[in-house]
Amino acid sequence: MNNIGIEQILFISTALFFIGVYGLFTRRNMITMLMAVELILNSVNINFVSFNKYLYPERLDGVFFTIFIIAIAAAEAAVAIAIIINIYRNHQSIDVEDSEEMKY
C-alpha cells in the first residue's frame, strides 16, 4: 500500500470528475443527475484529502474542507430531493424531458 503515489490518486479523482460531468449531461432522470453531481463532489473530496496527506501533512485545511463539502452536499441533496418530489406531484414523472414548460 505504501507505494501508491499521488499521481494515481489524482488520476482516479480526475476520472471521477469527468464521469460525473458525463453522467450529468447524458442522464435524463433527475435522481441520477443528482447522483452525478455527488460524483463530482466526491472527486473533489479525494483531491483535497490526497493533497493534504501527500503534500501538506502538517496542516489540516484539506481534511476540514472535505468534511464541510460532505455536509453541504447532504444539504443540497435534501433541497434537491424536496424539489424533485414536488415536481413528481405536479408532473407524475421525474424525467427531465417531461419538464418542458419553458423553452426557447
Binding site: V21, L24, M30, M33, L34, V37, I40, E76, V79, A80, I83, I84, N86, I87, N90, H91, V96, S99, E101, M102
Partner: peptide, 16 residues
C-alpha cells in the same frame, strides 16, 4: 409546474 421546473434547473446547474 413551471415553478418546480425552474427550481430543478437552478439547483442542478448551481450544484454543477
Amino acid at each position: 409546474r413551471r415553478s418546480g421546473e425552474a427550481a430543478m434547473k437552478y439547483i442542478i446547474s448551481s450544484a454543477f
